[in-house]
């Protein structure tokens, strides 16, 4: 899966989980940029992404994924395996 495809799919998940159709993600987007993205909804996002891509994040990754770019890279890496 191409990187931009991953980003588009992640964006759809963000919009659905956070109930906000106006969210636009870039690699640099962080929790500071999106009001609804807090430590609790972070878990919901992680679980939704795990399901959508059929991957599993490690405990450490969940804690350390900083911005959307990290997230997409991490997904890409897992999909390649």
């Amino acid at each position: 899966m191409e990187k931009n495809e991953i980003l588009a799919k992640v964006q759809t998940i963000f919009r659905d989980v956070l109930d906000n159709e106006e969210i636009v993600l870039t690699d640099e987007t962080t929790a500071n940029d999106i009001e609804e993205w807090d430590s609790l909804s972070h878990i919901q996002l992680i679980v939704a992404i795990e399901k959508a891509f059929g991957v599993k994040f490690t405990s450490l990754e969940i804690k350390e994924l900083g911005d959307v770019g990290d997230m997409c890279q991490c997904i890409e890496r897992k999909l390649r395996k």
């Binding site: 430590s39 878990i43 919901q44 992680i46 679980v47 599993k56 994040f57 490690t58 405990s59 990754e61 969940i62 804690k63």
Partner: peptide, 12 residues
């Protein structure tokens, strides 16, 4: 992984 990062013992 959810438990370790959040202290929640029930999966979503």
């Amino acid at each position: 992984n959810v438990y370790v990062s959040t202290e929640m013992v029930l999966s979503v």
